[in-house]
Design a protein around this nucleic acid. Structure first.
Length: 915
RNA sequence: GCCGGGGUGGCGGAAUGGUAGACGCGACGGACUCAAAAUCCGUUGUCCUUUAGGACGUGAGGGUUCGAGUCCCUCUCCCGGUACCA
């Protein structure tokens, strides 16, 4: 028997599977389908352990579904447009297309090493013309239906990326990719009208998504119920405001406009003109980050006034940057008594505070209140609505809000309104490496689509990258010059599509990446759609996962699924709601973090040069006590030749020079500073932190099966956690044991253990079946390890028959096949099976065989375990009770007291209540 | 602040309201070996105790229950998201 040697078998089977085409997925209406999708990677160059974690457990799930009888589609592709390619172009003078293609090529090999059941015939790559032609086509369809438009808004401009970004791509005032500051600018851009779908996006009917994702999206969409109210300036212009608290209208004491608001100029008086202009300018110069960091309220009086429609009072109008142009109407009525932000502003500028809601016990706050009152109570000083109760519900459910809205609607000065936090999606990017927006600027000044026949608008390859940061499309005359449908000269749009737009529909391109006359083949779509299970990271909650839902709903509404739907119906499928959502079930995996490691303890001799200690010798020692060197302690970090050493309470900076001698006893030869191990925290993996786990190295050391098994076993998949390099041993031993069990020539000595091993086998089947179904991968592997343990015990005294042993090992291999596909295939084949294990059916557990004959009956006295008695599993309640009461240990514990009650849980325990 | 998730041995983690710590890592003791690795056997929540056994134990406090890691209330800490959103 040969030893388990993954490297020799894994490659062999990967090639065999590919040659046999066992992972080709084709439409077969006679079989139930399962579309398993995992988020496609960006071709950054190297697959990291996170990719393995995101892809191999779902691969095991897809394989499991296949063995359960489903026709499974599990495709893979590349989200291949994006900025890193362009940065590489500028920094290293490599064309983005070349850089991307090389990375895709490299990642192909790495993806294959996972042993996944990807159907490569269905690979899609968003940067190829065959793909982005359809991204452009979708843009045009959206445009024709009024869902793509060019508009002006205050947007996020990233100076470092030299492009505009969608709200979703800005986190804490920084761009989500490089974490550089973003500015607010009034700009004209291309938008998708996602806000038209805001309400529908709030519904998750018919889909099973994690509550955290639904919460994040709901929060992001930010629906709030209230009223729009029209105030009037002294000049007669209308100032529209949105408020969730129209019941506090009588307490409005001033108004605030966003500095960018269109009425600012009209309202500003001559005396205030300079101050207002200064403030507007200052706001413009402030980055999003600075604005957020500024906790003090700022603002200036415009000198203008507006009339409150409910009581005719005259309110001073201010401008302040705490009012955002991007939300509501960019103007608010300020009710300092009942809104904490308005209150702060009023106090900062000495404005009137006028309470209009009394507390629940009728207590009325005075002008001198110390904080805004936002609770429930009763309206007062509110004209006709005095006495109306105020509760803590939103919108018309609150009687005070309801009454106020009715009043406004009768008077014609306001209306019930729902407002959303969600903004329309900016989809144009001022970058080169993306799909060109298929738009022409015509001679007559109008804007039009590139004729459909001219799609795709190809990205010119022959371009020059200038360090200006500007997209080369903006100065490429060959690209810019175009001809419109009427034969007139036109200029092309130089913006490209947001990569999130390309990835919003990739699940449809996988259906038929070969289609040249449609985005996808409706025959394929009718069978495979919708996606049954989607897996990926939760960080896409407000980006990709929101966009793709929107995209699918639009596709449904503009008829893109009509043909697909007709074919589905022809096959007898119920199509109701089938195109409402792209993915029926979503599961998010956690993140693999870097491991914790204790750094080398160093003893350093040398001399101080100001704050830096210049090393003569650096020696790795066992502990601080071993050395009396001047500087000694754990190496906390290292940058090039500068060490940070924890010397007692403080961290000392030590410089290792050319003349320094580094001694590491465990590493032979001449040592240098780069060989020193520094301390690592549990945190995200990154190259700069030096805690990256390279999956290629792991595969080389342990084999893909061990890496797969370990990623499934060592974590709760949803949670993730730190990678512990030593715990891989457990998964490696497990597979080595399976190898031994599966390759020995078994001979029986007796069959006394048959019942036990058969029970273990059937219990394992039930457990693994259930756990694979529910994404509980770690306990599925644990159940297989338990079966391994049982089999090893049986093997020792050869106490089971050859038949029972054969069933056990064959079942073990079948259960293991989705998790560790290579070793199971090799052993399966070596055991004489001619068909691949991956086309075999998943074993079925027989409950009668899985059932225990005897159980350990737990006997409790007052809820504490006092005895355990082995009894038949099917013991009756009466019998269990009498058995328990007959226990001598029970007798000891109930002695001197009276048995009050006996609770029997059949097949489990007996609790005797006595006092 | 608000929303979501969580706190269980030295570590990763298991536990339909019913034996807390499955499975594994690590550690310790032993076998094999000239030695090491690998492998095999045993121990491993804490405390008391020779054994038997007992007490304590799932972030803290309270409650419901015959019985709570699990359900309810209050609090606390950690992680993620979001935040002048009117």
């Amino acid at each position: 028997m040969e030893r388990y040697n993954p490297s020799s078998i894994e490659k062999k089977w990967q090639e065999q599977w590919e040659a046999d085409g066992i992972y080709r997925s084709s439409v077969d209406w006679d079989r139930p389908k399962h579309y398993a999708l995992t988020m496609l990677p960006y071709p950054s160059g190297d697959l990291h352990i996170g990719h393995w974690y995101a892809m191999t457990p779902p691969d095991a799930r897809a394989r499991y579904m296949r063995m359960k009888g489903f026709n499974v589609l599990y495709p893979m592709g590349f989200d291949a447009f994006g900025l890193p390619a362009e940065n590489a172009a500028v920094q290293r003078n490599i064309h983005p297309a070349v850089w991307t293609a090389a990375n895709v090529e490299r990642m192909h090999g790495q993806l294959r090493s996972m042993g996944c059941m990807f159907d490569w015939e269905r690979e899609a790559n968003s940067s190829q013309p065959a793909y982005y032609k359809w991204s452009q086509w979708f843009f045009q369809q959206f445009y024709n239906h009024g869902l793509a438009y060019r508009g002006e808004a205050v947007l996020n401009w990233s100076p470092s990326l030299q492009t505009v970004l969608a709200n979703e791509q800005v986190i804490d005032g920084l761009d989500e990719r490089n974490r550089q500051p973003v500015e607010q600018r009034l700009m004209e851009q291309w938008f998708f009208a996602i806000t038209k779908y805001a309400d529908e996006l709030l519904s998750y009917e018919g889909i099973d998504w994690p509550s955290s994702i639904m919460a994040v999206q709901k929060n992001w969409i930010g629906r709030s119920e209230g009223a729009s109210v029209t105030f009037t300036t002294e000049g007669g212009a209308a100032i529209e405001v949105f408020t969730t608290r129209p019941d506090t209208l009588w307490g409005a004491t001033f108004m605030v406009l966003a500095p960018e608001h269109g009425l600012v100029a009209d309202l500003t008086s001559a005396e205030q003109a300079v101050e207002v202009a200064d403030y507007v300018l200052a706001t413009k110069g402030r980055s999003e980050l600075e604005r957020m960091e500024n906790e003090q309220k700022t603002g200036v009086f415009t000198g203008g006034f507006a009339i409150n429609p409910v009581n005719g009072s005259k309110l001073p109008v201010w401008i302040a940057d705490y009012v955002l142009m991007g939300y509501g109407t960019g103007a608010i009525m300020a009710v300092p008594a009942h809104d904490s932000r308005d209150f702060e502003f009023a106090r900062a500028f000495g404005l009137t505070v006028a309470p209009v809601i009394a507390g629940p016990d009728g207590e009325v706050a005075g002008e001198d209140m110390e904080a805004a009152y936002v609770g429930s109570g009763t309206m007062f000083n509110s004209g006709p609505l005095d006495g109306t109760p105020v509760n803590d519900t939103k919108g018309r459910k609150n009687p005070s809000v309801d009454a106020a809205i009715s009043l406004l609607e009768e008077a014609g000065t306001g209306a019930e309104t729902v407002n959303f936090r969600l903004r329309d999606w900016v989809i144009s990017r001022q970058r080169y490496w993306g799909g060109p927006v298929p738009i022409l600027y015509k001679e007559d000044g109008t804007i039009g689509l590139v004729p459909e026949a001219d799609l795709p608008v190809l990205l010119p390859e022959d371009v020059e990258f200038l360090p200006s940061g500007r997209s080369p499309l903006t100065y490429n005359e060959e690209f810019l010059a175009a001809v419109d449908a009427d034969g007139h000269a036109a200029r092309r749009e130089t913006d490209t599509l947001d990569t999130f737009m390309c990835s919003s529909w990739y699940q449809y391109r996988y259906l038929s990446p070969w289609s040249s006359d449609a985005a996808f083949d409706p025959e394929e779509a009718a069978y495979w759609l919708p996606v049954d299970n989607y897996t990926g990271g939760s960080e896409h909650g407000t980006m990709h996962l929101l966009y793709t839902r929107f995209f699918t709903k639009v596709m449904r509404d503009i008829g893109i699924f009509d043909e697909t739907k007709a074919i589905m119906e022809a096959h007898g499928r119920n199509t109701e709601g089938v195109f409402d959502e792209p993915m029926l079930e979503l599961r998010n995996q956690g993140q693999i973090l870097g491991f914790e490691r204790v750094g080398d303890v160093l003893a350093v001799t040398g001399s101080w040069l100001d704050e830096i200690f210049a090393a003569d010798t650096v020696t790795v020692v066992g502990s601080r006590e071993e050395s009396d060197a001047e500087i000694t302690g754990e190496l906390m970090g290292r940058t090039e030749n500068v060490l940070r050493i924890q010397h007692g309470e403080r961290v000392v900076t030590v410089e290792v020079t050319d003349r320094s001698v580094v001694e590491i006893a465990t590493i032979p030869g001449v040592n240098d500073a780069s060989q020193l191990k520094h301390h690592l925290e549990v945190e995200r993996m990154s190259k700069t932190r030096g805690n990256v786990v390279n999956p290629d190295e792991l595969v080389e050391a342990y084999g893909a099966d061990t890496v797969r098994t370990h990623l499934m076993f060592a974590f709760d998949w949803v949670k993730g956690g730190p990678w512990d390099p030593s715990s891989v041993n457990g998964s490696q031993r497990f597979l080595a044991d399976v190898w031994k069990l599966g390759s020995i020539d078994y001979e029986a000595v007796s069959n006394s253990g048959d019942r036990d091993i058969t029970r273990a086998v059937h219990q394992a089947i039930a457990k693994v079946d259930h756990d694979m179904e529910t994404f509980s991968f770690n306990t599925a592997v644990a159940a297989l390890m338990t079966l391994r343990n049982t089999m090893q015990t049986a093997l020792k005294d050869r106490s089971v028959s050859v038949e029972a042993w054969t069933e056990a090992i064959d079942t073990m291999l079948l259960l293991l096949a989705p998790i560790a596909p290579h070793i199971s295939e090799e052993l399966w084949s070596a055991r004489g099976h001619s068909e691949s294990i991956h086309v075999a059916a998943f074993p079925v557990s027989d409950p009668a065989l899985a059932a225990d004959d005897v159980i350990s009956l737990i006997v409790q006295v007052n809820g504490r375990v006092r005895d355990k008695i082995t009894v038949a599993a099917d013991i009756s309640a009466e019998e269990a009770e009498s058995t328990a009461l007959a226990s001598s240990k029970v007798a000891e514990w109930v002695e001197g007291s009276t048995v009050r009650k006996v609770i029997v849980v059949p097949g489990r325990l007996v609790n005797i209540v006595a006092n």
